[in-house]
Design a protein around this nucleic acid. Sequence first.
RNA 1: GCGUCGGUGGCAGAGUGGUCAAUUGCAUCAGACUGUAAAUCUGACGGGCUUCGCCCUACGCUGGUUCAAAUCCAGCCCGGCGCA
Length: 298
Amino acid sequence: MKPKVIVIVGPTASGKTMLSIEIATLCDGEVVSADSRQVYRGLDIGTGKVTPEEMNGIPHHLLDVADPMDVYTAADFARDGQAAINGILEQNHLPIIAGGTFFYVDALLGTVAVPEVPPNPALRASLEKRTAEALFAELQEKDAARAETIDPHNKVRLVRALELIDALGSVPTPTSEPLYDALFLGIEITEAQLHHNIYKRIIDRLDHGMIEEVVQLHANGMTYERMEELGLEYRYISRHLKGELTKEAMIDELNTKTRQFAKRQLTWLKRYTAVQWVAPDAVTEARALVHHHTQTHS
RNA sequence: GCGUCGGUGGCAGAGUGGUCAAUUGCAUCAGACUGUAAAUCUGACGGGCUUCGCCCUACGCUGGUUCAAAUCCAGCCCGGCGCA
C-alpha cells in the first residue's frame, strides 16, 4: 500500500502557503515545498518564502537547500523531496506538498521519471551555439521517437534531449508509476481575485525591501544573467537596477508577467483530473477531505 | 497665424499606387512541457462564413485623380516641433 500524501496546488498568489500550514496544524502534518525558486537561500522576499513566524511551528522541507549561484534541478528536487517525505512518514506525520512548480511535483511523486543524467555544461555550451533547426535535424537522426514529440523550436528541450542521447544513446520514456497515494487539493480562485492578489503582493514585497534584496544579491556576486534566469521579480527588478525600466514600468511588467505565469500554471493544472477544488479560505472543507483521504484504505 | 513633420489594427511601430486585412514587437486568448520549469517553446489574434478558400468593413474626416490608393492631390479636424 502506497503512503498517503496531500498535494496542495493552485496558481501563484492563490494562498497555497497559508492553507498548507493550516492543514498541517490540524492534521499533524509537515510541509514539503515544491517551488523551484524557494529552494535557494537568500531568495526570500522575491519568492514570497514563508517566514519562521508564519510557519507556526510546522516543519518545512526543501526551502533554502541550495546556493542561488548553483543550478538546483528537478532531479535534485525529486531526490531530496522523496527523502524528506520518507522522513516525515517515519515520524508518522502527514506529508503535505505545497507549491507552484508542477513539473517538480510530478518528479517528486514519481509520475514523471527524470533520467539520471546530470547537466553537461561543456556539451550544452557547444549545442547552444547551433540553431534549433540543426539540433532538431540531429535529434531526428539519433532518436526519431523523441523528435516526434519535441517542439522543433525549443532549444532548451533539444539541448537536453541531445544531452540524454550523448549519455544514454536515446531519450528514455518519461512516465513511471506514482510512488504515493496522493490527494490533490486545488485552490479555486476567481480571475479578479487572483489579479488583485498578484498586484497587491508586488506592492507589499516592495514595501518589505524586495529591491534591496536584489541589490544585496548582486553585491554578493549574483550576476544579472543569473537574475534573468531566475525570472519574474529577479528578472524585472534587475532590469530596473540596470536602468532599462523605470520603477513604474518594472511594476507593470512584473504584474503582467506574473499573471501570465499564473495562467501557465492553470493550464498545467488542467491535466490533473482528480483535483478536489476548494475556496482559498475553506479550511474546514479541506480538512474534511484530508481526513477522508487519510482514513480510507485503498 | 505662418512653416514643418506627423495622424495605421488594444498599444508601440513598419509600409509610401496593385503581390496589404496590412512586416514586427508588446498585450490578449488557447496550448505544450522527458534534470535550466518563475525557465523555455507553439498556435490564434478586424468581422462573418460552407475556413488550405470566400465575402464584408478597414490605415484621422470628406471629396478627387486612377483600371487600382493606407500609399498621389485638395480641403477640413487633431498632435509634435520651429518661427512669429
